[in-house]
Simulated scan of single mutants.
Amino acid sequence: MSLFNLRRLSPKEEFPNLDQNYTCMAKVLTLDMYTRQFNRATESGVIFDDIIRPGLEDPGEISGPMSVGCLAGDAQSYILFCEFFDRVIDAYHGHKLSNSQQSDFNYENLKGGDDLDRTYVLSCEVAVRRSVEGFSFPTHCSRAERRQLLTLAKKAFSLGSEDLPGNMYALDKRMQGDEGVGGCPKVDAPSDLMMRTGVARDWPDSRAVWVSKDSSLTVWINFDDHLQMVSKRTDSNIKEAFECVIINILKLEALYRKLRCWFVWKEQLGWVVSSPADVGTGLRASVWIKLQRLSQHKRMKSILERLRLRMDSTESTGVYKVYNPHTIGFSEVELLQLLVDGVKLLTVMEKRLEQPGGSIDDLVPAQK
């Protein structure tokens, strides 16, 4: 009988070249830390080199936003390699893991969100990610695990067919690049990075998309995480999207519990998913907003930092995606409130700059 034996040299000889690597992984990783993690492996076989591979495959750019540069292979990774992950979370989110992560699913606590200026805010989206206890994450899971996760999702949605009416579509290559087949939304082909890091292994085996009957909600199964629930709207009512996601993620969690399965939760980390960029709430909220003048302002970068927001350009001229880069250290409602209040202020600034000689100096928020 032969045993698995990974042939490696010493930690010093195996230490990666981090020159011109602009990820949080490279920012925190030292030879001493690498040496301490070198011979460790989780119960499912995740080693430290598996964790840091995404940042080595995609080192980022000096002028771009800093990515985390790592992915967990399973929930135990966050415990076994906590020295590393805790520092990555601090570097990316500015959050030290000392207090319990708080959750607030009471969407009625959100002030505003249904009153954004439709002249400027064109559309919005709210998404949450979840992982299922006892399964490896997409970078590391086996084919059988992935198929079990899909079977579990089918059982959950079948069990909740009355409370969560909709249809599930098993992914096949016909769907890629189309506007959707039947009622299934468009599915992009996996990126090169997804292939190299293992997220898209065996594509499209056991990937599926569930779509609600009224098309207001989509659940992506076995993509970047076990589950990602998304509510996307073609108007500015992000409060409605938030309410839709919160109500239905709680329904889905209850269905999984009936099947004796639980979403992964840790007291300090909150909801645990594959990327440390998404732990905590697992929530991303985005709006697409017209900011033709403000986007070119010299203080725009500082304004976004003070609002705790990030902005990406889109294919449409003058339209930008504004979203929360942080997911931990705030509750779900607090994150949405930051976005709603921030977008309102950005809209006021854009209107001010449309006026002849308009200045926004008095509107710039104090340092965060």
Rank of each mutant, 00 (worst) to 15 (best):
L6K: 12
R7E: 15
L9Y: 06
E13C: 00
E14T: 09
E14Y: 03
D19S: 14
N21E: 14
V28G: 03
T30E: 11
M33H: 10
T35F: 00
N39T: 02
N39S: 00
A41L: 11
A41T: 12
V46D: 09
I47A: 09
I51T: 04
L56V: 11
P59A: 02
E61R: 10
L71V: 03
G73P: 04
A75Y: 01
A75C: 03
F81N: 01
I89Q: 09
D90V: 00
Y92C: 01
G94E: 07
N99P: 05
N99D: 14
Y107C: 09
L110E: 08
L110M: 14
G112H: 08
G113V: 13
D114C: 14
D114W: 13
E125P: 07
E125N: 12
V128Y: 04
S136A: 10
S136K: 06
S136T: 01
R143S: 15
R143Y: 10
A144T: 03
E145K: 00
L152C: 03
A153I: 00
K155M: 03
F157D: 08
L164M: 15
P165V: 08
G166T: 02
N167V: 05
L171E: 07
D178L: 02
V181D: 05
G183H: 08
P185R: 11
P190W: 12
M195S: 11
M195H: 12
R196H: 10
R196C: 06
T197Q: 12
S206M: 06
R207P: 10
V211L: 12
S212R: 13
N222S: 12
F223P: 15
H226Q: 07
E240T: 06
V245K: 05
N248H: 07
I249Y: 03
K251P: 03
L252Q: 09
L252H: 06
R260I: 01
C261E: 08
F263C: 13
W265N: 01
K266M: 07
Q268M: 06
L269M: 05
G270H: 01
L283W: 02
L283V: 03
I289L: 14
R293A: 07
L304M: 15
L304Q: 11
R308H: 12
S313M: 04
T317K: 09
T317L: 08
K321D: 15
V322P: 06
V322L: 07
P325M: 01
S331A: 08
E332N: 11
V333L: 08
L336V: 11
L336M: 15
L338H: 14
L338K: 15
V340R: 06
V348F: 02
K351Y: 08
L353C: 11
